[in-house]
Write a protein that binds this DNA or RNA. Structure first.
Length: 109
DNA sequence: TCACTATATCAGC
DNA sequence: GCTGATATAGTGA
């Protein structure tokens, strides 16, 4: 049975965009924002923070502009972040010294 | 209206 | 490479 959470238009647009990021690729908060014509990357982070559709909406595929991990499950550090890193590793996306190992895995909308 | 926010960028060191 | 300041806009209370 599909949940139908009450979400805003903006959130729906963010989730739709993120759902397009293929396995093995990542995007950034800023790139998602730009794709939506929004100048606030923080607003994208807020929307993903409350993603009710995980893992159908793969918010773990959105990282920071400096190619560091960004956040996960409301956390910017700690256990949650290691889970995010493991999810990505499972898809072939690995990090080296806290940065995306292969920048060519950044997906362009 | 206010105070948050899983950001981005820049200046200064 | 780090820290702090600032721009920015979406959202719940």
């Amino acid at each position: 049975m599909g949940m139908t959470p009450r979400i805003t238009e903006f959130q729906a647009r963010v989730y739709r965009a993120v759902a397009r990021i293929p396995r093995g690729r990542v995007s950034t908060y800023g790139m998602v924002a730009a794709h939506l014509g929004c100048r606030s990357c923080r607003a994208v982070g807020q929307a993903l923070r409350r993603n009710p559709f995980a893992p159908r909406v793969p918010c773990h595929r959105v990282i920071a502009a400096d190619l560091s991990l960004g956040g996960f499950q409301g956390q910017r550090r700690g256990r949650a972040l290691r889970r995010k890193q493991r999810l990505l590793a499972r898809e072939g996306v690995t990090f080296k010294n806290g940065r995306l190992g292969n920048p060519r895995q950044v997906y362009r909308f």
